[in-house]
Simulated assay, not measured.
Amino acid sequence: MEGLGWLSAIIVGGLAGWIASSIMKADTGIFLNIILGIVGAVVANFLLSLFGVNFQAGSWIAQGAAGLIGAVILIWIVRAVRGV
């Protein structure tokens, strides 16, 4: 999460992961929500940059949206691999 400090990246990542787990009906804890949000933001920023969309603005809302999109993608991938 470029442009955000560590504390704000944890907060935004946690919120994005929590919203994604609620949307996907995944039973994850707070620690996994933070990981999903932060890693999801990295994944989403990469994937969206391939399509010319740039969330590198460093704002809380932009990185939250990227984290949400990425976390949903990560939950979907895990479910697809597990076959659940």
Rank of each mutant, 00 (worst) to 15 (best):
F51P: 03
V39W: 03
L68W: 03
L15W: 10
I77W: 01
G17N: 05
V53Q: 11
K25D: 15
W60T: 13
V12T: 14
A26Y: 04
G70I: 11
R79Q: 14
I11A: 15
I19P: 03
G29Q: 06
A26S: 11
G13W: 10
I10P: 03
L47F: 13
V12G: 06
T28D: 14
Q56G: 09
G5P: 11
G83V: 10
G67Q: 00
K25M: 13
G13N: 12
I38F: 07
A80W: 01
G14V: 09
V72M: 07
I73V: 15
F46N: 08
F51T: 11
F46L: 04
G52H: 02
A16T: 10
V53H: 11
T28C: 10
A62C: 08
G29Y: 09
V72T: 09
L7R: 07
G58Y: 10
G67N: 00
W6F: 08
A41C: 13
M24Y: 01
R79C: 11
A65D: 11
K25H: 14
V84H: 03
I10S: 07
V78C: 06
I75D: 05
A80D: 00
A9L: 04
S21K: 09
V81S: 03
A20S: 13
G14H: 11
I75H: 03
A16G: 15
A44E: 10
I19S: 02
I77V: 15
I30L: 11
V43G: 02
G64A: 09
N33W: 08
I11G: 09
S59N: 10
G64Q: 09
V12S: 13
G5R: 04
A71M: 09
M1R: 00
G67S: 01
N33L: 14
G29R: 04
R79E: 15
G37S: 15
I10V: 15
N54K: 05
L32C: 11
L4Y: 10
